[in-house]
Write a protein that binds this DNA or RNA. Structure first.
Lengths: 342, 342
DNA sequence: CCCTTGCATGTAAACGATTACATGGATAGT
DNA sequence: ACTATCCATGTAATCGTTTACATGCAAGGG
């Protein structure tokens, strides 16, 4: 049987003080005399008291939880970010809820309105306009932070990788190897990452005076299936590009797989470069040259930003949140999937 | 600004009834007259009332959340299971917390004792004995369910794949192709899956009269690194096995990668079969023959079981939980990584 | 016509913490 | 020595629900 739940009142009786004093001993120890604080600490130890979060949260008008919105839990790219976020909240008596936007067609503002969460980190920049509007009118917009992705034209704070720079590095690397005919498999239409990476790619290609062909920009959506489709498109081309820059590692895997099945060798016939640097990229055959995102930093900074935003939202002096965008650096990781054109 | 929070009292006033009636209208509508229920519903709509979960949970002595313990969020194997669990709880006004056992060295019973969670699904069978003892003495053991993994010798309910059968199918498949010299890369020492899969493998190998050599059982730990190590061990062997059964798909990827780098072809020189059937297995090159686990079913059943356990724990008539173990079937998926020996 | 029964609703006491305000004793300033 | 100040602690209201118990009305049985 569960031992009788011990309340703050029991601790107070044991220590010979009032409940207020016990509460203070726990949250503001410096307000108390050394001796009473010690007495309370002993009483806590003796009784085995644990604070009841539901009660505390009710009284303090907070939820004690934040929500992390993930576009696709199945994509291992997000795991490290989630771990970093969880870790960051570990000390704060705030729990971390994780939801997949794909599976959950739930009404997001509800989480706020029900007092289930104090804030939200969205790794999904594709939230419906209606959701954003609802956040605004519910007055909870200031307790939302974006990470990795963001919403164009919104002023909500965000942490993101330098996607343009990543795309630039990718093209530059291929160019350095001697490639001139570079294709690009994009992310899904409308996605902010798609836009940023394609823009960076086009800019660098132009800067280097490389040829540009419309059919070398192949629409994808970060999924394995889209990598396969892109490969088939390339296989069917009369003059194939000598290198392909994929918008994500997952896409690159499926692309390489399909190419090689068709007898197109990687990197001998076509070089492939990805984006993300997930764990498997090192282990794929051939191992994948890619742009590394600092997922740990992304997660940590997002968590920290959210904590600040929540604190600010509670404060009376609105700090008029400056348009906060934090850029996290990216890095080229050279492996076997890229080489000089045959 | 956040609109003034509307309480149940406001709804009551609007509807011209008492708070009790409003509460009943929300949770036990049939207790009320058609007309008053309708009046309350209208009032709710007009005021935009949302129940405050912290208050409700406090009063009802529940947490409104469950915890899912994952051995390694980075392994995409777990994603579908998590999604299935989340989905199962979607209707129940219970939130789902996800924690990685690796990153969080936190004290697990604390979650229960703090009233932060009502129950737990552990995908990790490697919980410390001290934790299990703590659960027991805290009286929360009956609100724990295991999925995928389990704890040997414990009576806690669990949902699991038929791992022995999976191993059997793998060996049988290789045997059908003509293989006789079959190696096995195991999971981590002490893990229940390791034991089950190895046992199934050994049993079937014996049944078919296949040769057994000690150095063909290679210790791994489900990680990419261990797949690489295993491959190096195999490469160094004087007489290599003609086929390798890996305890997980991830291990198989790293193993194949390292083999092929060393010029050992898969499947021409060595066939490789995995376990799990994660999304990437279809897309690796060569695509991976493997044992499919029904991850969706595993997640759904675990969630359901936990709900039942929680309900039972509240009930006065202890249903003396029968030793509940649910077996989920597995299936052989044949792809390119296995073939008749050269 | 009265008494019992039952049903729909109201009243108010929990749930377990935090915290504004009150209190009283010690210290210091004049 | 008297009062103003300050600091440590206690008292009690409060957070927003749910629910045991009380109430009063309608119906039905004798």
């Amino acid at each position: 049987m569960a031992q009788k739940t011990v309340r703050i009142r029991d601790v107070a009786r044991e220590a010979g003080v009032s409940t207020a004093t016990v509460s203070r001993a726990l949250s503001n120890p410096d307000l108390l005399t050394e001796s009473t604080r010690k007495a309370v600490e002993d009483a806590v130890r003796i009784t085995g008291y644990r604070v009841n979060h539901a009660a505390r949260n009710l009284r303090m008008q907070r939820a004690g939880a934040v929500l992390v919105l993930v576009p696709n839990l199945g994509n291992p790219f997000f795991s490290t970010i989630l771990a970093a976020i969880s870790e960051s909240f570990a000390g704060t008596d705030t729990s971390v809820l994780i939801a997949d936007t794909a599976s959950g067609g739930r009404e997001l503002t509800g989480y706020f309105l029900d007092g289930r969460i104090d804030g939200m980190i969205s790794l999904d920049g594709g939230l419906a306009q209606s959701d954003l509007a609802a956040f605004d009118s519910a007055g909870v917009a200031e307790r939302i932070v974006f990470a990795c992705e963001w919403v164009d034209g919104s002023t909500l704070p965000s942490v993101r990788s330098d996607n343009e720079e990543g795309a630039r590095l990718a093209v530059q690397h291929l160019h350095d190897l001697g490639h001139r005919d570079i294709a690009h498999v994009t992310g899904p239409a409308g996605n902010v990452l798609t836009k940023a990476r394609r823009a960076g790619m086009l800019a660098e290609r132009a800067r280097l005076g490389l040829p540009s062909r419309d059919d070398w920009i192949i629409r994808g959506d970060f999924s394995l299936a889209s990598g396969r489709d892109a490969a088939n498109r390339i296989i069917a081309m009369k003059d194939r590009p000598s290198a392909v820059f994929c918008a994500s590692d997952q896409v690159a895997f499926a692309l390489m797989s399909t190419l090689m099945e068709a007898g197109v060798r990687v990197p001998e016939d076509i070089s492939v470069i990805g984006f993300d640097d997930i764990e498997l990229s090192k282990v794929y055959t051939p191992s994948l040259t890619t742009i590394r995102q600092d997922r740990h930093a992304l997660g940590c900074r997002a968590a920290q930003l959210l904590l600040e935003q929540i604190a600010a939202a509670g404060d009376p002096l609105a700090p008029a949140a400056p348009d906060r965008v934090e850029m996290v650096g990216v890095e080229l990781v050279t492996r076997q999937s890229t080489a000089a054109p045959g």
